[in-house]
Amino acid sequence: MPQLIVRSIAALLLCALLSACAGRMPRPQVELPPLRLAPSSLPTPLALQQQLHFRFGRHERDLDALLEADAQQVQLAVQAMGQTGVRLRWDGRQLTEQRASWLPPQVRAERVLDDLQFALWPTAAIAAVLPAGWQVGDDGHQRSLSRDGTVWLQLQRLQDGSLQLDNRAEGYTLRIESIDMAGQD
């Protein structure tokens, strides 16, 4: 019984913190184009355990994620304090989502999928789906999504193997540290 109370308090605290953070999110300066890349455009399957560090202004949150992707589908589960906040499944046609009731509505499945694909899918696959006026560039260390010469989304591949995503349109950064789970028992 005490463990149930602790989990309930932790979930309520996380809900309050995420709501406070998300409630202050300004309207995006520009609407980023949706990617919705086919799972088959990923060259090799992925099985990753990830630690996500999200920063919006002065607010910071650490989350855990499990990602599996192959030619048929992408599956992602994001957890905070041992509680699953969202589960996503993308088969190239339909995005399904299971959300915890405490997850703020500002956390959108579409944006999570787009960030994931911008970070991990090939640059050519991203370029192929961009609308007129948008460009993607990638020099091997940094990837950027821009319109009219302004970078709105930037990914840096850091020396320690982690990724740093800077969403300038919506005003947040996301650091992604991954552990490859493929082949581990």
Score class of each variant (00 low, 15 high):
Arg55His: 08
Asp62Cys: 05
Gln154Ile: 06
Gln135Ser: 09
Glu170Pro: 01
Ile179Thr: 15
Asp166Ile: 10
Val74Leu: 15
Leu88Ile: 07
Val86Trp: 04
Ala119Glu: 00
Leu103Asp: 10
Leu12Gln: 14
Gln72Ala: 15
Gly57Glu: 13
Leu76Val: 15
Leu95Glu: 03
Gln164Leu: 15
Pro45Ala: 15
Pro26Cys: 10
Glu97Leu: 12
Leu42Pro: 04
Arg7Gly: 05
Gly133Thr: 12
Leu46Glu: 06
Leu113Ala: 03
Thr123Ser: 15
Ala109Trp: 11
Arg108Leu: 04
Ala71Arg: 13
Arg93Ser: 09
Ser144Glu: 12
Phe118Leu: 08
Leu35Ile: 02
Glu31Met: 05
Ala100Ile: 03
Met25Ser: 04
Gly57Trp: 09
Asp148Tyr: 01
Pro2Trp: 13
Ser40Trp: 10
Leu63Asp: 01
Cys15Glu: 14
Leu32Phe: 06
Pro33Gly: 03
Ala100Ser: 15
Met25Val: 14
Arg7Cys: 04
Val107Glu: 02
Gly140Asn: 05
Arg7Leu: 12
Gln51Trp: 04
Leu103Phe: 05
Asp166Asn: 13
Gln73His: 07
Gly85Pro: 00
Arg36Cys: 03
Gly171Leu: 07
Leu153Asp: 04
Gly140Arg: 06
Arg168Tyr: 02
Pro45Cys: 09
Trp134Lys: 11
Pro26Met: 11
Pro45Tyr: 10
Asp180Trp: 12
Gln159Arg: 14
Arg87Pro: 00
Pro131Trp: 01
Leu153Ile: 04
Leu113Gly: 02
Gln83Cys: 04
Ala11Ile: 08
Gly85Ser: 03
Arg87Asn: 08
Leu165Ser: 10
Asp115Met: 12
Asp115Val: 12
Asp185Ala: 13
